[in-house]
Design a protein around this nucleic acid. Structure first.
Lengths: 256, 256
DNA sequence: GGACGATGTTCGGTATCGCCGAACGACCCG
DNA sequence: CGGGTCGTTCGGCGATACCGAACATCGTCC
């Protein structure tokens, strides 16, 4: 595994998460690499416009080339392409926002987002990264991973986002088992206070490829329990997208 | 300059432009690298989720991590942040779509996009990459670069997108000189038939940092000449954004 | 069905080239 | 003016990336 490239990737990720402007020294500390090494990697990344430096502070940040790459990924993403129409119909049916996400590392990255069909101003969340355990999308995906991968994700110290975030591995594991049984995942104010989400996994030819879910105010999606209409709609749409993605019926867990 | 990282960057860019799925052999030919080298680089990139492989064809494509990076870049981008409100007001004033872009290599990447204020369905173009010479944004930026950089951009074989695309270096150079004199750039169906754009450069503390422009149907923006109201609005907004970006008055070309 | 072509993958020796400790210089702050 | 911090440079050692060539694997065409 060629080391400099892996390290360059780690630098990019570090610049992409949290503080968007970091100096050489700060990066070398966070990533436990010698300062001179980080410097060399940054020079190379800068040449490719993957990183640029702040004119006045001299600190480094992501460069414009990454936007182009992100856009290109979304253009070619099969899950996104096959979700487009289904997500629209789901949003119209439940009158809430719909999100489609994939797992990258310990985060869920939103690859498609349909606004709630009303005239309120909403922020486009495509590209947003959310810790998997604080998202219904993430739980739906992780619940269907190999046990080994799942266990690894339960280990790393999971951050607390709100007072409702579940970070204890035991409780999360139990929650995931439940997801596996019922075929959907719920998140109730675990990422943002007042916001909830109901999601179901989407499968491809070989296992889970992502998840689709409905997000909205907690009191509307979840009262005494998950809103049953929404829940049925999410499960149905997830199954249809899975079919479009080429999932064999046997690979998609089904109940009753 | 550390070679493997630069090469990895070139691989990412190649995957991000044109055919979104490429094999090892195809990449090695396009980038003139040995096959085994490309293979090693791809393995490293794959480990970092910057690249993933198609399940059935085995070919490589960009990975989900790049979306997260793109989003992070946009979040931290000063030009974008300072353009948000001005772009909205510009769109409302001229009732057309507004785009903000920066130069990366020989392309303009759109970092902000305000829809035309009507109810028509429009595609979000944030992240789109357009050859600089086929875009008013690009011409506005390049016209204010160092002569050396400008000359370099005029050299590389410029692609033809429509019958109206200007690819001859002499004609382009003349056009850029004109842009420098009048303070705005025009593009008339040079990227997409029927579409035109009027743009002006935005300056920061040390030179041009991007451009902002109005895009719409050619017959509405440009009849016998650029629509004068639009033109005035674009120039005014570009100047205001430049001021917000910390441009010294002396650095912003002004006329009359 | 067998052979061919194309493509992905592995291997191993060589010399390249990245790695990193340490020193230098630039800058800020007190 | 002196101490501290940070970005940058240097240089020599040695790990390791590089790449030609062989191998494996698949699809395809007689």
């Amino acid at each position: 595994m060629i080391r400099s490239v892996v390290r360059a990737g780690q630098i990019l990720k570090e610049l992409g998460s949290g503080a968007p402007r970091l100096g050489v020294t700060e990066l070398s500390e966070r990533l436990a690499m010698p300062k001179a090494t980080v410097y060399g990697l940054l020079r190379a990344l800068e040449q490719e416009d993957l990183v640029e430096r702040d004119a006045e502070t001299g600190k480094y940040r992501l460069g414009p080339a990454v936007v182009q790459l992100g856009n290109a990924y979304l253009d070619g993403n099969e899950l996104r392409a096959r979700s487009l129409l289904w997500a629209d119909s789901l949003a119209a049916r439940v009158v809430e926002a719909v999100r489609v996400g994939v797992l990258v590392g310990a985060n869920v990255v939103v690859v498609h987002h349909v606004f709630r069909p009303d005239d309120s101003v909403q922020m486009l969340e495509v590209g947003a990264a959310i810790p998997w355990h604080a998202s219904a999308l993430g739980k739906a995906i992780v619940a269907h991973l190999d046990p080994a991968d799942r266990a690894a994700l339960l280990e790393g110290g999971l951050p607390t986002l709100t007072g409702w975030t579940i970070v204890e591995p035991e409780r999360l594991a139990a929650s995931l088992a439940q997801v596996g049984r019922v075929g959907f995942a719920v998140e109730d104010q675990e990422a943002v206070v007042g916001e909830a989400e109901i999601a179901a996994a989407v499968f491809g030819r070989e296992g889970v490829v992502g998840a689709i879910g409905v997000a909205g105010p907690a009191e509307r999606l979840i009262g005494e329990g998950p809103h049953s209409d929404v829940l049925a709609a999410v499960r149905e749409i997830a199954r249809r997208v899975s079919k479009d993605m080429g999932a064999r019926a046997s690979a998609v867990p089904h109940r009753h």
